[in-house]
Structures are given as structure tokens and as C-alpha cells.
Amino acid sequence: MFNIISYIIFLTVSSYITIDVGRRCFRAGKSYLEYLIHDSEMCLTINRILLGCYYLLNLGYIAVNLAFWDRVSSTEEMMAVTAARIGYIALILCVLHYMNIFSLYFLRNKLTLK
């Protein structure tokens, strides 16, 4: 019973976080990409591709994460396991976000040096 509740809480919170962060990065990423690339159509295309890859990677990780979930037998354990799994999702989102920013920044620097 505790596992089902953990799954529902985990899926709800992590899916909400993933979708909300994706939307925010998509909106904020438009101006950042336009600053870097100076071509609005190319920026929109790159931003859509990044958003699609972001959703696929994170929602896939969330689904795979459920396969390796240990059996939960108490309320305290349920809260601890669910919080840790949601924390991992938040950390992965943060790392992916900064990797994208740095890779686009270095790509921009490389293009301007040519």
C-alpha cells in the first residue's frame, strides 16, 4: 500500500516539476538563444528541440526510476524514499540546465572566433 502512495506522490510531484521547469526554460531560453545566435527562426527550432529532448530524458528517467524502487513498509520510510527520489530529479534538472547553458555559451564563443 505504501508503495502505491509513494508512486503516486513521486509521479505527481516529479512530473509537475519537470513540466514546469521545461516551460520556464523554454520561455526564458528564447531571449538567451537570440542573444547567442541572432537568428529568431533558428532559435525557436533549437529551443523546441531542447524542450523535446528535455521532456523525453526526464520523463524517461522518472519511469525507469520506478523500476528500481525498494519495498516501502512504513510512512516514515515512504516519505524518506519519495523525498530522496524527488531530490534526485531536481538535481538532475539543475545539472541538465547548466550543461545546456554552458554548451550553448561555448558554441557561441566558437562561432564568433571563426
Score class of each variant (00 low, 15 high):
16 Y>S: 09
31 S>V: 09
57 L>F: 15
86 I>Q: 02
43 C>E: 06
61 Y>A: 06
67 A>G: 10
16 Y>E: 03
82 T>E: 00
98 Y>L: 13
105 Y>D: 06
20 D>Q: 09
58 N>Y: 10
43 C>G: 15
87 G>W: 01
35 Y>N: 09
51 L>N: 13
42 M>G: 13
75 T>M: 14
112 T>G: 00
76 E>Y: 01
77 E>P: 00
94 C>E: 02
106 F>S: 05
92 I>S: 15
33 L>A: 13
32 Y>G: 07
40 S>V: 13
16 Y>A: 14
41 E>W: 07
56 L>T: 15
1 M>I: 05
61 Y>R: 14
96 L>D: 10
17 I>G: 00
77 E>C: 05
18 T>Q: 06
12 T>C: 07
111 L>C: 10
33 L>D: 02
79 M>K: 03
58 N>D: 12
76 E>F: 01
1 M>F: 08
69 W>P: 00
25 C>H: 04
93 L>F: 03
27 R>V: 04
56 L>E: 09
8 I>R: 04
65 N>L: 07
98 Y>K: 04
103 S>D: 06
114 K>D: 12
109 N>P: 01
68 F>D: 15
107 L>R: 12
86 I>P: 00
36 L>G: 06
61 Y>V: 11
95 V>I: 13
78 M>K: 01
70 D>N: 02
77 E>F: 03
55 Y>G: 04
19 I>A: 06
30 K>R: 12
97 H>Q: 09
106 F>A: 01
109 N>R: 12
26 F>V: 03
97 H>R: 08
57 L>H: 13
89 I>L: 09
34 E>L: 06
41 E>M: 11
94 C>A: 10
93 L>V: 01
95 V>H: 00
85 R>K: 15
55 Y>T: 04
64 V>I: 15
104 L>Q: 06
12 T>N: 02
3 N>Y: 03
103 S>G: 03
23 R>K: 15
102 F>T: 08
40 S>F: 04
68 F>L: 10
52 G>C: 11
34 E>D: 13
3 N>G: 06
29 G>Q: 06
46 I>F: 02
76 E>R: 00
107 L>F: 15
72 V>T: 13
20 D>Y: 13
11 L>W: 04
59 L>Q: 11
80 A>N: 03
68 F>C: 09
89 I>Y: 00
9 I>K: 04
53 C>N: 13
17 I>Y: 07
15 S>Y: 08
80 A>Q: 13
12 T>R: 02
79 M>A: 15
37 I>N: 09
14 S>H: 08
41 E>T: 14
18 T>C: 12
34 E>V: 00
25 C>T: 04
88 Y>H: 11
28 A>W: 08
10 F>L: 12
66 L>Q: 15
108 R>I: 01
19 I>R: 01
94 C>G: 06
3 N>F: 05
75 T>Y: 11
96 L>G: 07
79 M>Y: 08
38 H>K: 14
90 A>W: 02
95 V>E: 02
87 G>V: 00
61 Y>G: 14
64 V>S: 13
84 A>W: 03
75 T>W: 09
26 F>H: 14
31 S>F: 12
85 R>H: 07
92 I>F: 11
103 S>Q: 10
84 A>P: 00
43 C>P: 02
3 N>D: 13
11 L>C: 11
16 Y>D: 05
47 N>L: 11
67 A>F: 11
45 T>Q: 15
2 F>Q: 00
89 I>R: 07
57 L>P: 01
69 W>R: 08
3 N>M: 11
